[in-house]
Simulated assay, not measured.
Amino acid sequence: MIYTASQFHLQYIAKYQLIVKANYIHDVIYVVDAEGNLLVYMKYESNSPTEEALKLLSLPFQHVYVSIPHSNLTFIPNDLYDMEDTENYQEFMDNPMRPAENVSLTYLQTQAYFQYDVLLEQRWKSIFPDAKFVPEFKLNLEQARPHIPLQGEVLGLVFNETAVDLFLFINGQFKFYNTFEIKTEEDLNYYVLNLFQVFGLQAKISKAVYSSLNNENPLINRLSNFAKHIVELKASQPLLVSDEEVAGLAKDYITELPTCAL
Rank of each mutant, 00 (worst) to 15 (best):
Y3C: 05
F8Y: 15
Q11I: 07
I13C: 08
I13K: 09
K15Y: 00
L18G: 00
I29R: 10
V31T: 04
N37F: 07
L39H: 06
V40N: 03
K43A: 07
N47F: 12
N47W: 03
P49M: 14
E52P: 02
E52Y: 12
A53L: 12
L54N: 07
L59C: 04
S67N: 10
P69I: 01
S71E: 15
N72E: 08
F75G: 01
P77L: 02
L80Y: 09
D82N: 11
N88C: 08
N102G: 08
N102K: 13
T106C: 08
L108Y: 02
F114C: 05
Q115L: 01
Y116N: 07
Y116A: 02
V118W: 00
K125C: 13
F128D: 13
K132L: 08
E136L: 09
K138F: 11
K138Y: 13
R145I: 10
R145C: 03
I148Q: 02
L150G: 01
Q151I: 11
L155M: 10
N160G: 07
N160D: 14
L166S: 00
N171F: 10
G172F: 00
F180R: 06
I182H: 00
I182R: 00
T184M: 09
E185V: 01
Y190P: 00
Y191R: 14
L193I: 08
L195Q: 08
F196R: 04
Q197V: 11
V198C: 01
F199G: 15
L201R: 06
A203V: 14
S206A: 14
Y210G: 01
S212G: 09
N214C: 01
N215T: 14
E216Q: 11
P218R: 03
S224E: 10
K228H: 11
H229V: 15
E232Q: 14
L233F: 06
K234T: 11
P238R: 02
P238H: 08
E245D: 15
A247P: 05
G248F: 15
L249A: 07
K251G: 02
K251R: 10
I254C: 12
I254G: 13
P258F: 02
C260F: 05
A261N: 10
